[in-house]
Design a protein around this nucleic acid. Structure first.
Lengths: 163, 163
DNA sequence: TTGTTATTGACTTATACTGACCAAAATTAT
DNA sequence: ATAATTTTGGTCAGTATAAGTCAATAACAA
C-alpha cells in the first residue's frame, strides 16, 4: 500500500514554519530565488506555498519587495484582544460556508491551537447534526444549509473567543 | 439486533480500524483510489464507509485533501475520561430533555470536570442554535424540540465517550 | 411491502506544480 | 540626471492528479 508521498509544498511549508519558530519575533525574511534553488523548483512554487499555506486565514501576513535586495517577509499574526479575534474568525467563516471549507477551517484552528481536538469533535458533531436535520427533516436547500452552517460556526467560535 | 452487515463496507471498516490499531498515534493516512482498488470497488464507496463508520459521533475525525498528493487521514481520538460514566449519562438524557434539564446536566458535568467550561459553552451554543432554528425557522413543536435536543446531546456526549 | 443501508458511476471541485510573461526596484552607464 | 540594465518578485493559465457529491439503483431488514 503506497503511503501518501510528502509533497514539495509541504516540505517548503515546514521549512518556513521552522524558520519562524527559530525567530522569536514571529517573522522571517526570505529570498524567493534561493528558496526555489534549495528545493529544486520553479520560483513561482514559492508563491504557491505562501498563498496556500501562509495566508491570513492561516494566521499569517506576507510582505514583499521586488528588485535588487528584494525580499519576502512572512509574519505570524497575533491578536491583542478577543474582539479582534472574533472579527477575524467571523471574517474567515463568512456568510456561507461549505462542509469542506468548514472542516478545513477547523483543522486549521486546531493546528493553531485555537481549539482542542475535543472541541473540534464537538463542533463537527454539531455541524453534522444540523446538516442532517436540514437535509432530511426540513428539506433545506444546499445553499441555505451553507448559510446556516456559517451562522452556527460563527456563533460557536465567537462564544469561544469571548469566553 | 440490527446487523445490516454488508460485507464490503464492513471489510473496509475493519481494514481501516486495523490500520488505526497498528499505528500508535491513532491516525492513519490513506489514498482513496488505492483503497478502492484493493477492495475492488468504486472510490466513492470509501466516502460512504468514512461517513457511516468514522463519523465524529463515533469519536473519529477525518481530514482530506484533493488534487496532487491528495490523501485521506482518519484520526481516532482517545480521551482518558471514564467512558462508562459518560455512556451512563447518555442514558440519563433519555428520549427527550428540556432546556432546563439539559443545562443542569451540563453544569453537573462541568462541575465533575467531565467536560471543560469551553466544551460546555460550545454544547450550549449548539443546543440553543438548534432550539432557535426549530422554533422560528421550522416551526417544530416543543416536544419534538425536546426530542431533537436529546438526540444532539447524546450524539455529542457519545462522541466524547468514544474518544 | 416498506424503510433503511449499501453500491455504483457520472459529474464536480480542489490542489500541486510548471513555465512563459509581467512589474518593480536598485544599479550602472551615459 | 536619465536611460539602460540587472535583479528581484508577481501573475496567470495550462496540465496532471486526486478527492467529493449526488442521485439512481440494489440489497436487505423489519
Amino acid at each position: 500500500m503506497s503511503l501518501p508521498s510528502s509533497s514539495l509544498t509541504k516540505v517548503i511549508e515546514e521549512y518556513i514554519a521552522q524558520l519562524l519558530d527559530e525567530n522569536e519575533d514571529g517573522e522571517v525574511s526570505l529570498r524567493r530565488k534561493d528558496l526555489a534553488e534549495r528545493f529544486g523548483c520553479v520560483p513561482s512554487q514559492i508563491n504557491y506555498v505562501l498563498r496556500s499555506r501562509f495566508a491570513p486565514e492561516n494566521g499569517f501576513l506576507v510582505e514583499s519587495q521586488r528588485g535588487g535586495h528584494g525580499y519576502i517577509k512572512v509574519i505570524q499574526l497575533t491578536f491583542n484582544n478577543c474582539d479582534e479575534e472574533v472579527v477575524h474568525l467571523a471574517d474567515l467563516v463568512g456568510n456561507a460556508i461549505t462542509e469542506q471549507e468548514a472542516r478545513k477551517l477547523l483543522v486549521n484552528l486546531q493546528n493553531r491551537e485555537v481549539i482542542s481536538p475535543r472541541e473540534r469533535l464537538i463542533i463537527e458533531v454539531a455541524l453534522r447534526s444540523q446538516e442532517e436535520n436540514g437535509r432530511s427533516l426540513f428539506d433545506v436547500s444546499p445553499y441555505r444549509r451553507d448559510l446556516m452552517r456559517a451562522e452556527l460556526l460563527k456563533k460557536i467560535l465567537t462564544s469561544l473567543a469571548l469566553g
